[in-house]
């Protein structure tokens, strides 16, 4: 037993040294197409709630961070393959994802998903047609609900589908839908909100425990001094802690 522990400690030290070397720059992977969490602003840079949050976390953890964008579909394979070090892309913590990657503690409250439909529409939960981005937890939810699911590659297309009548409603994170509902008088929330998945957390490689611990601590400190709540209020991404 003792031998084993020494072995583990040596391994940890080795890993620690290698870690410091490889993580002098932490690459933050995001999608850049999911306002207000993350989007590309007019200047062509990553912006949004997670940009503010990520920069602050890096400052607290004393890391140099760099932002990269990646397609949603391949965002996890590229993380485990080592092309960037974290996923900070509005990714809900789910069991199936947790089997493959590790998450920090959640930095938003579990955000309800909501149905956005044309103004005054009644939702038919059994026979209706619902749009969702393919590969999201909302898509699986609709499939299980029994209604007709229409999947689109990007969030934009799901909204367009509701506008032009292809789908009765779109199911997506409420924080993503609210600014759209505000800006477009013809669209409004309908039906009840549903709670799918846990809160949003940062995704990291399972072998990257040390980096995870650093970010975890930084998130905790932001929760403790209330700065996280300020950010949540600023970007309107759900309930505060």
């Amino acid at each position: 037993m003792k031998k084993l522990m020494i072995g583990t400690a040596a391994l940890a030290m080795l890993a620690g040294a290698a870690w410091a070397e490889s993580h002098s720059v932490v690459r933050m992977g995001t999608e850049g197409a999911y306002a207000p969490y993350n989007f590309i602003n007019d200047a062509g840079e990553v912006d949004g709630f997670e940009r503010d949050l990520g920069d602050e976390l890096c400052k607290r953890a004393e890391l140099t961070c760099e932002w990269v964008t990646n397609e949603w579909d391949s965002i996890i394979p590229n993380l485990v393959s080592g092309n960037y070090d974290t996923i900070i892309a509005g990714m809900s913590i789910t069991d199936e994802r947790d089997e493959v990657i590790d998450f920090t503690q959640n930095y938003t409250q579990p955000d309800p998903s909501a149905f956005l439909a044309p103004e005054g529409a009644e939702l038919d939960m059994e026979g209706g047609i619902f749009a969702a981005q393919s590969g999201t937890i909302q898509a699986s939810y609709i499939a299980e609900m029994g209604a007709t699911l229409v999947e689109f590659a990007t969030p934009d297309e799901t909204i367009a589908a509701v506008r032009n009548g292809e789908a009765d409603a779109v199911l997506a994170d409420k924080a993503f839908l609210s600014p759209i509902a505000e800006a477009d008088a013809e669209l409004a929330f309908a039906g009840d909100d549903v709670l799918i998945g846990g809160g949003i957390g940062m995704g990291l490689r399972e072998s990257d425990g040390e980096l995870r611990a650093k970010f975890d601590a930084a998130i905790q400190s932001m929760k403790d001094d209330g700065t996280l709540n300020d950010l949540i209020t600023k970007w309107e991404v759900g309930e505060t802690f």
Partner: peptide
């Protein structure tokens, strides 16, 4: 084109599995 009721072509299912 959008996939309806998860009825898609071979690539659709392949990316479904790659995704899951």
């Amino acid at each position: 084109f959008p996939a309806w009721r998860q009825k898609g072509d071979a690539l659709y299912y392949a990316s479904y599995f790659a995704d899951k």
